[in-house]
Amino acid sequence: MSPEAHAGASVALFLAHAVTLEEEAAERYDELADTMAVHHNEVAALFRRMAGYSRLHRDEALGRAAAEGDALPALRPWEFAWPSPESPESAALEYTHYLMDAHQALTLALAAERQAQAFYQQVADTTADSRVRALAGEFAEEEAEHARLLEDWLARHPPTPAQPKDDLDPPVAVD
């Protein structure tokens, strides 16, 4: 939610955003996994794993909504108030490449998790509703935990030394 939009948001409106954030994150990771699988890139498995984590988080948000007892509002895609063009945990499509390695994939995922953490933290810091504040703070901490996990994985997958990729079909050498 944008700063002016979330100050008065209800728990149901906040959870509608949280569920969609996690759902769209999972769908983006699945999309990336599919594209990498098409190009026989092994980082597909990593993206698939990230999609699974996002779905777990989405289910948790849905569980909270059920516990609150409020029906979530059904927002149209353009009615969500995100601080960015896409929902915050959607990994940036434009920074993918069919030859990307594990370090690059993890870096992409880390940026997405940090954006989600920042979003939840911003809601927690600015909301006027104590229940939204508690939920958003909790979700922010979970995203921070995901980010720490990714940082550990990154340490185990250092950048690949600069070298020409074994590209059998270079795109710019055909004309």
Partner: peptide, 13 residues
């Protein structure tokens, strides 16, 4: 059917 577009292609959006 999974898209065969290059990863990063704007058409995904």
């Amino acid at each position: 059917t999974k898209p065969v577009w290059c990863p990063g292609c704007g058409d995904f959006g």
